[in-house]
Lab assay of single mutants.
Amino acid sequence: KRCPSCQAPIEKNEGCLHMTCAKCNHGFCWRCLKSWKPNHKD
C-alpha cells in the first residue's frame, strides 16, 4: 500500500493497524487508510 498523505510505499509485516509513515510521519489506519485518531473506528 501507499501512504495516503505522501504516497510513499508502506509495507506491513505484523502488529496493529495504526501505521506511521517513515517518510512524512503521517499516522493512519492500515485497513481503511484514514487518518488515525484516538477513537478511530473502521
Rank of each mutant, 00 (worst) to 15 (best):
A8L: 06
D42M: 01
T20I: 14
N25G: 14
L33S: 01
C16M: 14
K12Q: 11
E14R: 04
K37H: 13
C3M: 08
S5L: 08
C29E: 03
S35F: 14
P9W: 15
K41E: 14
H18Q: 13
C6G: 08
S35G: 08
A8S: 10
C29R: 00
C21L: 01
D42P: 08
C6T: 04
G27I: 09
T20N: 10
C24L: 03
E14G: 10
G27P: 08
P38Y: 00
H18N: 02
P38D: 02
T20G: 05
A8N: 15
G27F: 02
A22V: 05
C29L: 01
C24D: 10
H18Y: 02
R31D: 13
N25T: 09
H18L: 09
C29M: 00
R31A: 10
K34L: 01
P9V: 05
H26N: 05
H18K: 15
K1M: 08
C24P: 06
A22D: 14
P38G: 10
E11H: 08
K12W: 12
I10P: 02
D42N: 15
C3T: 03
L17M: 10
R31Y: 14
C16V: 15
D42S: 04
W30I: 06
K1I: 13
P9C: 09
D42W: 01
C32G: 01
C21D: 06
G27M: 06
K34R: 06
R2Y: 14
N39D: 14
W30G: 13
P4Q: 04
H26K: 05
L33R: 03
K12A: 13
N39Y: 04
C32F: 01
S5Q: 15
L17S: 07
W30T: 11
C3P: 00
K1N: 13
W30A: 14
D42L: 03
S35A: 12
K12R: 07
W30S: 09
D42T: 09
P38R: 04
C6M: 03
C29W: 00
K34Q: 08
S5T: 14
H40Y: 03
K12F: 03
C29D: 03
H40R: 05
K34E: 12
K12G: 14
R31F: 06
K23N: 07
N25I: 08
G27C: 12
W36S: 13
L33N: 03
F28Y: 10
W36V: 14
N39L: 11
N13A: 10
P38V: 07
K1V: 03
N39A: 11
L33P: 03
L17A: 10
H26P: 08
E11N: 00
R2T: 13
A8I: 04
H26E: 09
C3A: 00
C16D: 15
C21K: 02
E14V: 04
S35P: 15
P9Y: 05
W30R: 06
K41T: 05
R31K: 15
F28H: 15
A22H: 04
N25F: 06
W30P: 13
E11C: 02
C6A: 10
N39M: 08
K37P: 10
Q7C: 11
N13D: 07
K1A: 00
D42C: 14
Q7F: 07
K37I: 10
K34S: 07
C6D: 09
G15C: 09
C6S: 02
W30Q: 10
K37S: 14
I10V: 08
C3S: 05
K1W: 00
H26L: 03
H26M: 09
E14L: 03
E14S: 10
A8Y: 11
F28N: 13
T20S: 05
R2E: 14
C32E: 09
C32T: 02
E11A: 07
T20K: 12
P4N: 00
E11W: 10
H18D: 05
K34N: 02
H18T: 03
Q7H: 05
S35N: 09
K34P: 04
A8V: 06
L17G: 10
P4D: 00
P38L: 07
H26Q: 07
Q7G: 14
S5E: 15
N13W: 11
K12M: 06
M19N: 08
C16E: 15
T20Y: 15
S5W: 15
T20L: 09
S35K: 08
K41G: 13
K37E: 14
H40I: 01
E14Y: 12
C32L: 00
L17T: 06
N39Q: 08
N39V: 09
H18A: 08
W30Y: 00
K41R: 08
K12Y: 08
K1F: 01
R31H: 12
R2H: 13
A8G: 11
C29K: 01
G27A: 14
S5C: 13
C32K: 01
N25S: 12
M19R: 05
C3G: 02
S5K: 15
A22Y: 12
G15V: 03
A8M: 08
C16P: 13
Q7M: 13
M19D: 12
C24V: 02
H18E: 11
P9R: 10
P4H: 11
M19F: 02
C3N: 13
G15D: 06
S5H: 05
P4E: 00
H18W: 05
N39K: 12
G27Q: 15
Q7A: 10
Q7W: 09
N39F: 14
L33W: 02
C29S: 01
R31N: 14
C29Q: 02
H40S: 12
P9L: 04
C6F: 00
K41A: 12
L17Y: 15
I10T: 09
L33V: 03
N13T: 14
S35W: 06
P9K: 04
K41I: 02
H40L: 06
I10E: 12
L33H: 05
E14M: 13
E11G: 04
K37Y: 10
E14A: 11
H40A: 12
C24G: 05
C24E: 08
E14D: 09
N39S: 11
